[in-house]
């Protein structure tokens, strides 16, 4: 088979005339550049401006006055984030909730991914499809479904009371527990898919060799399977953790007034307080917090590509 380097394969791309090639590259590059990358510069810019009662509600960052550029950077929004304890608390709370939910998702997702990867080959595609299917139905409606389960006269409480296990309804809604549950539930497919991709590639011969050498199943799992799936674990965890930190819908619908997550804080600064500069500052800090996990994700995602092309070259 004709292979290519890790940077792409096929002569088709190379055969295009240089101008056409540039044109083809330009379309996705310009679209994503303009509508994904450039907007961050605006967030950075607005985060340094002064809030004002105007449309849009902030003062311009620079102005030409009598031929001189009048530039006024206002770091007050960031100072405000440091001074008001609410913001620090919200960042820490978001990181904590995201981390705990990610851990629970891993504990549920890993056995599922493992079981699917070890199931008969003919059944794997069906099982995977069943994992992905909920992801295709509305996220908002699936979070809504949990309200019906968790509220005081909801499905869980009604069942437990009918069975005589409890006398008074448990308080499940508007708790941190409900938020964990919501995050675990909605992000579970994002954990299972990379783990499955990783575990399915695992060489069965290695497990057999380990067993032949007398290792007990648990030892084989801990010394062979687990280390070899480390990359899938990191990828799955980051795919859950990063969006969970900035999650808005789940805490808004399932959390209580004490659940303070930074995504909801940003939302309120923007929509309720109409303080766009502070909302932007909140976003800038959130991005800075998330840069490290995003880089980690990119590293583990880039690695299997390189592995695959290496294997392909060898074949």
């Amino acid at each position: 088979m004709s292979g290519g380097g890790p940077l792409g394969r096929g002569a088709l791309g190379r055969a295009l005339a240089r101008n056409r090639r540039r044109l083809v590259i330009a379309v996705p590059l310009l679209w994503l550049g303009l509508f994904f990358l450039v907007p961050f510069l605006y967030v950075a810019k607005i985060s340094l401006s002064v809030p004002a009662i105007a449309r849009p509600p902030y003062l311009p960052l620079w102005e030409w006055k009598d031929g001189t550029l009048d530039l006024s950077l206002n770091f007050g929004n960031f100072l405000f984030l440091i001074q008001d304890r609410l913001y620090l608390a919200a960042y820490l709370e978001s990181l904590r909730i995201a981390a705990i939910s990610t851990l629970i998702t891993l504990l549920i997702g890993y056995p599922m991914a493992y079981a699917i990867a070890r199931s008969p080959a003919g059944r794997r595609n069906l099982l995977l499809m069943l994992v992905i299917l909920p992801f295709w139905t509305s996220f908002l409606l699936r979070v809504y479904a949990w309200i019906g389960f968790l509220k005081s006269n909801g499905v869980i409480n009604n069942t437990l009371m009918a069975l005589g296990l409890i006398d008074t309804p448990l308080v499940l809604m508007q708790t941190d527990f409900a938020v964990y549950l919501g995050i675990v539930y909605t992000y579970l497919p994002f954990m299972i898919l990379p783990l499955y991709a990783n575990l399915a590639r695992l060489d069965g011969a290695l497990l057999e060799a380990s067993a032949d050498l007398g290792a007990r199943p648990l030892t084989t799992f801990a010394t062979v399977t687990l280390p070899l799936s480390a990359r899938g674990i990191v990828a799955g965890c980051m795919l859950v953790f990063i969006p969970a930190v900035g999650e808005f819908v789940i805490p808004a619908l399932l959390g209580g007034p004490d659940t303070l997550m930074i995504g909801a804080v940003l939302w309120n600064e923007f929509f309720s307080n109409r303080d766009w500069p502070v909302a932007s500052a909140v976003a800038v800090v959130m991005l800075l917090v998330l840069i490290l996990p995003i880089m980690l994700l990119r590293r583990v995602q880039a690695a299997p590509e390189a592995d695959a092309s290496k294997a392909e070259d060898a074949a």
Binding site: Y42, I242, G263, L287
Partner: peptide
């Protein structure tokens, strides 16, 4: 730019695009 939007919190994407 192809991988980052997949994990970027929606509040950040929404705010930045509006600006």
């Amino acid at each position: 730019m192809i991988t980052a939007p997949l994990v970027m919190p929606e509040v950040i994407i929404g705010l930045s695009l509006l600006l």
